[in-house]
Design a protein around this nucleic acid. Structure first.
Length: 426
RNA sequence: GGAGGGGUGGCCGAGCGGACGAAGGCGGCGGUCUUGAAAACCGCUGUGCCGUUAUGCGGCACCGGGGGUUCGAAUCCCUCCCCCUCCGCCA
């Protein structure tokens, strides 16, 4: 959510942001609602002031033993007028609030302007693409042949777009998130968190998954939502709190399952581990002071890159353009690994900063100095990394001609020393 | 799931229809004292919004959320949420 003041004082800034994003939004209607809201607010408050003053007079009259009846009548009359104004105010206010929730964040100046994925800027590429002397096979084939990915079983258990890791596959995924968590906690200074995988409505509003993206979420019959990312619980950890400025920045990391309906993604990348309803991810999240945003995001991206580098996967970093960026961020960097069988770069990590956009919704503030006014903290987060896709990248990049998969060296200690995944015994 | 007790400012805690934005304490800020510090003493110290426009003044709202009663609600009523204790169930 943006600051209301921006709507009133710098509407052009907001308008430019919407244009850069190619975002369809009736800003003029919002500006008008804001003006009307303030008009009504003044009317309501004036009548309330009058009423309060009469109530005080009644109290005094009664203390002195006088007749307060005429004053009571007068107060009731004002009450009737007041109610009419209040009703309209409530209506205008609620329409205004609704629109504010649908207004996206303002991209930073350095974000490349563009309309689609095509306009994202590749910043750099790390690692050599492996030269295959055979035709590389897609990860789902490799996984199924090795008996470590069971798509059919998952479909029977749950449905389409689910997967079950089996044997070395399950161990590999576990090895991945353990390696990631260990690295981020021990080397990068993050505090490990193991949060609920369900969130309430308020929390999903906090990260701005609601109200706009409800169709992407799974919801339980008693009103909980399955988290689409650990960003939701982590960002809401300090909801309604006033943080100590000396404690900032705060670094958190969490491993969670992530649940996404993927509504509207029908037909796209339906095969394999790339787009499933439940996947697993280690998330990095920071609460920082205003002004620390870009530097801290840069460090966060590097922390995520460390993992890909350690796994020796070829990857590149992209700067998302205004048109491809999500609703919430001011700026996003993606880390994409190369998938040789698909001959595509697919994101293993997406790292974004939000300014106070989410903190405003979560009401997470801090006091910059003793006696100073409270300010919203700034938030950011990124995957460090998505486990399923990372596993897929490993399968494709580390596959051997005979169908086995070599395990990246850093993961071997996490897999009881296993160096290669072999096919099941006939 | 059943029974009972609670949710008040940064924290603890009183108040249970009108002088209450809320006693008292802790913490924080400023000052006196001191070579300095501590102690002691004095003063100040919630948040958001609106108006006026300014190192200020005025108003409105907020005592878990929402609704109601009343001229007037932290205080009474309804409802929801959360926490604690006991019982039941349970990985």
């Amino acid at each position: 959510m943006l600051d209301r003041r921006l709507i009133r004082e710098e509407p052009e800034k907001v308008r430019q942001a919407l244009e850069k994003r190619g975002y369809d939004f009736d800003l003029d209607a919002l500006i008008e609602l804001e003006a009307r809201r303030r008009e009504l607010l003044v009317a309501v408050e004036n009548r309330r002031a009058e009423k309060n003053s009469i109530s005080e007079q009644i109290a005094q009259t009664m203390r002195e033993g006088g007749d307060a009846e005429p004053l009571r009548k007068r107060s009731s009359q004002i009450g009737v007028e007041l109610q009419a104004h209040e009703q309209e105010l409530e209506e205008v206010q609620s329409r205004f609030d609704q629109m504010m929730l649908d207004l996206p964040n303002i991209p930073l100046d350095e974000v490349p302007v563009g309309t689609s994925e095509e306009d994202n800027v590749v910043m750099y590429q790390v690692g050599e693409l492996r030269q295959f002397d055979f035709t590389p096979r897609p990860h789902w084939e490799i996984g199924q042949d090795l008996g470590i990915l069971d798509f059919e079983g998952a479909t029977r258990m749950a449905g389409a777009r689910f997967v079950t890791d089996v044997g070395a596959g399950a161990t590999l995924e576990r090895a991945l998130f353990n390696f990631m968590l260990d690295t981020h906690t021990r080397k990068h200074g993050y505090t490990e968190v193991f949060p609920p995988f369900l969130g309430n409505k308020r929390s999903l509003y906090g990260t701005a998954n609601l109200p706009k993206f409800e169709e992407d979420l799974f919801k339980t019959t008693d009103g909980y939502y399955l988290i689409p990312t650990a960003e939701v619980p982590l960002t809401n950890m300090h909801q309604d709190e006033i943080l100590d400025g000396d404690d900032l920045p705060l670094y958190y990391t969490a491993y969670t399952a992530c649940f996404r309906r993927e509504a509207g993604a029908a037909g796209k990348e339906t095969r394999g581990l790339i787009r499933v309803h439940q996947f697993h991810k280690v998330e990095l999240m920071k609460f920082v002071k205003p002004g620390q945003g870009s530097d801290e995001l840069e460090k966060l991206v590097k922390n995520a890159e460390t993992i890909i580098q350690a796994l020796e996967l070829p990857y590149r970093r992209t700067h998302l353009c205004t048109g491809d960026m999500g609703f919430q961020p001011q700026q996003t960097f993606d880390l994409e690994a190369y998938f040789p069988a698909m001959d595509r770069w697919l994101e293993l990590s997406s790292c974004s900063q939000y300014g106070d956009f989410q903190a405003r919704r979560c009401n997470t503030r801090y006091r910059p100095a003793p006696g100073a006014k409270l300010e919203f903290v700034h938030t950011m987060n990124g995957s460090g990394l998505a486990c399923g896709r990372t596993m897929a990248a490993i399968l494709e990049n580390y596959q051997q001609e005979n169908g086995t998969v070599v395990i990246p060296e850093v993961l071997r200690p996490y897999m009881g020393g296993m160096a290669e995944i072999l096919p099941p015994m006939p």
